[in-house]
């Protein structure tokens, strides 16, 4: 110690007397040390415990997030697929029918192979035919949307076939023809059933199938010309229409039209669902007026085919 200031010796002596305080009791010192170390150990353990608790809570939070995420994913997977699965048997009059149509579109969209797409599209045509049959047997007039969608899918299948090489195209068109012939026969059988109210629409469907079969026959007779026609048709549609999910820009058939559908299968206005021709109110009038439809699917005449010109086939 260096005293910077002069201190009175008497004061220094008095302060020095404080230094001679009694020595510490060793036992008291040992006890005090023991108490402090006990406190220290306790504090150390408490911190370690808190550290583990923090880690555990974080892990628990992480685990909970993981579990919740897994549950959501499983819910979406199983719940979503269960809904879609349940919708597969629905008819147009039932609530999940739109989900069924959307799942069909998704399936076609996901298929990368053109042959697979054609097969799926024709499966859809068959499904529509079966739905018509079920409704007809139940005495319910099938909604026009069914035939519209069926026709659209046939056209898409034909356009896809036109993109294949000659051998594959012939095989694909042959397959389409066989399926359409089967469906035409089914329609003929249904037409002879007991649902008299259904007969006009069934006749229209049968006519549509007949027309499509005629086109297929001409395709098979002159593959090159039909290929060009189908490809031109596809290009026109790409330019003039929006692309629905299911079709990879092969959307609207040349002879189809797009009546405004509100998503419930109901047709807005009196339009022939097979040809796009305005129809009279009388359901008995089932004439086809294909000449009234132009190539981009819009409607000539008084019938107002609303919507984004040529989005037929989109549910």
């Amino acid at each position: 110690m260096t005293n910077d200031e002069k201190i009175d010796p008497r004061l220094a002596a008095l302060l020095d007397e404080l230094k001679s305080a009694s020595a510490r009791d060793p036992q008291a010192a040992t006890r005090a040390r023991g108490r402090f170390l006990a406190q220290a150990v306790s504090a150390s353990e408490e911190r370690r415990h808190n550290w583990w608790m923090t880690i555990f809570q974080q892990k628990e939070k992480f685990a909970m997030n993981l579990i919740m995420s897994a549950l959501v994913v499983l819910g979406l997977l199983f719940g979503g697929s269960a809904t879609v699965s349940a919708a597969q048997d629905d008819l147009p009059t039932q609530s999940l029918y739109q989900i069924k149509l959307m799942s069909e579109d998704v399936r076609v969209w996901l298929a990368s192979d053109p042959n697979m797409k054609i097969e799926l599209l024709m499966d859809q045509v068959q499904t529509r035919t079966e739905e018509m049959a079920v409704l007809t047997l139940a005495g319910i007039t099938p909604p026009a949307e069914l035939s519209i969608r069926a026709q659209d899918r046939i056209q898409q299948a034909l356009q896809l076939a036109a993109t294949l090489d000659d051998v594959s195209m012939s095989a694909a068109i042959e397959q389409i023809r066989t399926q359409l012939q089967t469906q035409e026969q089914s329609m003929t059988q249904l037409q002879s059933g007991s649902c008299t109210e259904c007969e006009p629409i069934l006749q229209q469907i049968r006519d549509m199938l007949h027309t499509q079969l005629g086109q297929i026959e001409s395709n098979l007779a002159d593959p090159e010309t039909s290929r060009e026609q189908n490809q031109n048709q596809s290009q026109n549609q790409v330019r003039t229409t929006q692309t629905p999910l299911a079709t990879d820009s092969l959307v609207t058939p040349q002879t189809s039209y797009t009546p405004a559908l509100d998503g419930t299968g109901q047709q807005n206005g009196n339009i022939n669902p097979l040809t796009g021709t305005p129809m009279p109110q009388d359901p008995g009038n089932n004439q086809n007026n294909n000449e009234n439809s132009n190539s981009d699917g819009s409607v000539n005449g008084n019938g107002s085919a609303s919507g984004a010109g040529g989005q037929g086939g989109k549910p």
């Binding site: 510490r24 010192a29 005090a32 040390r33 402090f36 170390l37 220290a40 150990v41 150390s44 911190r47």
Partner: peptide
């Protein structure tokens, strides 16, 4: 870090001086 050994050493080092 509440290391008990370090705390014990600190106690042994400073407690006599603090007591005094």
């Amino acid at each position: 870090k509440l290391d008990t050994r370090a705390l014990a050493e600190i106690y042994d080092l400073y407690s006599p001086r603090l007591y005094r």
